[in-house]
Design a protein around this nucleic acid. Structure first.
Length: 485
DNA sequence: ATGTCC
């Protein structure tokens, strides 16, 4: 058993490690999980979340979500709010794949209508959306033009014919974090990123055709508000981020911070991977402006991929995407730092929220979500493994406990190495096809790494977020087709 | 996650 004996059970879904657990902790650490899920967490989670609790300026608690697992510095599933005046910003609290996120798109097609075209659709998606390590996209832009992409995000896509105006409304911050400054990004990052707009990438990035079966609608009214109105309605969910560009931004600033953190700012951390700088320092502000560029690159990336998905469906069904009802439900970001207003000790104030493998989940009535979702709360998209299905949830008022943050996926239980040893990609593809899921990949090893068996049970993760009052189930979506890198 | 090591 890896659970530390010092852990206190606060409720059925909240576990706390007190500041006495480790020297230097400024606040306690809280892990959101059921008893079953906390038992599956690796020891690294407890070590990392309590390291985060030592970071200067941290407010209330260092959190880990129910899908939490070991990551770089912070656990994946980590949430930390910092005081912008006295606190730090840490790339390890955001992740290498800055603004890795999920997007969900509807159709007005039923599974019966899609089934005869499924192979054609998946093959066309696989052909039209570049996948795999180092893949490049069809968007031709110069390195100078790419600076506009990263400063404008989805707005650039709208100007260049890759977006519907309403897509921007359905994206956090309109698909553009304000304050992005390309002059704070290295030439190397620009070089790595300028030809990668509209590409899926590798690892756990995928694009999936899914079905909303009537028995999987948990909240009929909210499902309708989110656009699920037909039995066995087909939707497309995809997951990707800022590719080599975001990775380079993170790498560059981790290095810069290591040089100044202790020498210039006198900050000591328990793990070099928690390299950070005061938020208000020149280095901290430069990273914040560069990070926003990577956030916007990821929004633009998902926007161009959406454009391609619409083209593919349009070509297969000989109808306009509008006629096929291909509107965006929402786009959620997993790996960001943001200034948000939250109630802390009874007072509304601005805090710097790090979410790393965690989804913002604003509740009903909150500012910053589209008007059409004002009553329901923000749509929350949680991607499961490609074998087991995914969820659409809604933010809840009780999400205040975690600064309105929730889980982002299943969370690995098996390392990539271990999964590749145990599972053969080609056999997995055949097995999945027998179960009605047609999958295309350019890496058998990569496919094996993403097998359902390598992940926590998505139903457990989602149930834990609902029980904890962070997000409630609306629709469970089952996969029928998948392309992955 | 990632031109999976400049």
């Amino acid at each position: 058993m890896t659970i530390p004996s010092a852990i206190k059970k606060i409720s059925d879904t909240v576990w706390e490690l007190p500041t006495s657990y480790k020297a230097g902790m400024l606040v306690p650490a809280r892990i959101i999980a059921t008893e079953k899920l906390i038992g599956t967490m690796d020891a690294g989670v407890f070590d990392q979340v309590t390291n985060v609790a030592c970071l200067p300026g941290i407010i209330n608690y260092a959190y880990c979500m129910p899908d939490g697992h070991w990551g770089y510095g912070f656990p994946i599933g980590g949430v930390a709010a910092m005081d912008p005046e006295t606190g730090v910003i840490s790339p390890g609290g955001i992740g290498f794949d800055i603004n890795c996120g999920m997007r969900l798109v509807l159709t007005n097609l039923t599974y019966d209508e899609v089934k005869p075209h499924l192979r054609e659709l998946v093959d066309a998606l696989f052909y039209r959306i570049p996948t795999g390590v180092g893949c490049t996209g069809f968007v031709r832009c110069s390195q100078d033009e790419f600076r506009n992409v990263v400063e404008q995000g989805s707005r650039w896509c709208l100007k260049h014919g890759y977006a519907w105006p309403e897509d921007l409304e359905m994206t956090e911050e309109g698909g553009c974090f304000p304050g992005a400054d390309a002059s704070k990004v290295s030439h190397k990052a620009i070089e790595r990123g300028y030809d990668q707009v509209g590409t899926l990438g590798s690892g756990n990035h995928y694009c999936e055709i899914q079905v909303a079966r009537p028995e999987n609608i948990y909240d009929e009214e909210t499902a309708r508000a989110f656009g699920f109105t037909i039995p066995n309605q087909v939707a497309i969910m995809f997951h990707c981020g800022s590719r080599g560009f975001g990775h380079q931004v993170a790498t560059d600033y981790l290095q810069i911070f290591l040089g100044v953190m202790e020498r210039k700012y006198g900050i000591k951390v328990l793990d070099r991977e928690l390299s950070c700088a005061p938020f208000h320092s020149p280095e901290g502000q430069d990273y914040f402006a560069a990070m926003k560029c990577a956030v916007n690159m990821a929004f633009a990336n998902r926007q161009v991929i959406l454009h391609r998905i619409r083209e593919v469906f349009s070509a297969v069904f000989h109808k306009d995407p509008e006629e096929l009802g291909m509107r965006m439900v929402y786009d959620v970001a997993h790996n960001t730092a943001k200034l948000e207003k939250h109630t802390v000790a009874g007072k509304k104030r601005e805090v710097l929220i790090h979410r790393k493998g965690s989804t913002r989940a604003f509740g009903p009535g909150m500012e910053g979500i589209p008007d059409c979702y004002r009553e329901t709360g923000q749509p929350v998209i949680i991607g499961g493994s490609m074998e087991t299905g995914s969820y659409l949830l809604a933010g809840m008022k009780s999400g205040a406990e975690t600064f309105f943050s929730t889980a982002h996926g299943s969370g690995r239980t098996m390392s990539r190495h271990q999964a590749k040893k145990m599972i053969r990609g080609q056999k997995l593809q055949r097995d999945m096809e027998e179960r009605g899921i047609y999958v295309r990949t350019d890496s058998w090893g990569g496919l094996a790494e993403e097998a359902g068996a390598a992940y926590k049970d998505i139903d457990d993760v989602v149930a834990a977020t609902e029980l904890a009052g962070l997000s409630k189930r609306v629709v469970r979506l089952v996969p029928v087709g998948n392309i992955k890198g």
